[in-house]
Design a protein around this nucleic acid. Sequence first.
DNA 1: ACAATATGTCAACAACACTGACTTATTATC
DNA 2: GATAATAAGTCAGTGTTGTTGACATATTGT
Lengths: 169, 169
Amino acid sequence: MSDPRPSANPLFLREEELRQAIEMLFFAYRDFTGEADAMLARHGFGRAHHRVIYFVGRHPMISVSDLLSILRITKQSLSRVLGQLVRDGFIVQHRGTADGRQRLLELTDKGTAIEQQLTEAQRQRIATAYRRAGGDAVQGFRAVLLGIMDPTVRARFLGNAPPGDEGSP
Amino acid sequence: MSDPRPSANPLFLREEELRQAIEMLFFAYRDFTGEADAMLARHGFGRAHHRVIYFVGRHPMISVSDLLSILRITKQSLSRVLGQLVRDGFIVQHRGTADGRQRLLELTDKGTAIEQQLTEAQRQRIATAYRRAGGDAVQGFRAVLLGIMDPTVRARFLGNAPPGDEGSP
DNA sequence: ACAATATGTCAACAACACTGACTTATTATC
DNA sequence: GATAATAAGTCAGTGTTGTTGACATATTGT
């Protein structure tokens, strides 16, 4: 005579909901990077190369230290990957005019080409997901992702100039 | 005399929107895994250990091959990590009753304890993000993530029994 | 002059993935 | 019952990506 549905207790639902979120993030991120990974492997590169190419493309003339703080890796880790990309002609280094110690990074035409190719698969994937989910869902998606990331990084997406440069080239 | 806002063309907005999504996924996923990574490092483990512990906890008595198909890694890669976890008493292997070739995996009490500890930080992060974003946002978040992941994996979250077992132990 | 900063480099190490080849049980099939 | 297929494990080698630590060089700021 009570509620026909067993109506599992809220705590269980909450736990299940949270676990699903954890797993959805895992699977979505894996599949999201999968296609680009395969493309990179054909070029003899890895995901780290993609990240460097991506963020240099996104922030032309970015300094090495700014790139390091975005990627949050050591300069030795970056050096290996960046050195390859410079040697192979995907990125050029310009000596800073204001500060001559800086090496400002920029994609070459070749670099821009591979960046387009690599990111296109990911853009397509997001675009399709956005289209199917609808505008309200996109707002929700963004709101939750913003809530998941660290507050320091969050600022980057909130219109304000993020800490440590960004926004304008 | 026209629109006071320069109103950047739709193509640019779309491109910017997609790039933001790519970056938000990158930052959110990195920060999402960061806390657990630090905890694992203190135990002398890596992220791979967490994934194994997590999915064995989620699917008690899962077979090795089913676990492999969830993780999408080779058995040699799993072997290293799983061997450690069994040796250190976090996971036990049961000989399959129906099929004696299978080694069904299960967390020990020790394994359950560390699983709770590791996942707790992630659950907290998601819970806070969910709470702040609200119910509609959560639905949107889920819808977009579902659209991003591969269709074969998507089924796992749509109530139907996923391909390759799941759901019930 | 001297200290701080930006970048680069050498060396060693660890985690985590891969391929390829092979072994051992166990189950299924002819 | 012999034979093939499957589940799992193992050994060996390799590559990418991250880490520490130490040190070098050029440039800027005090």
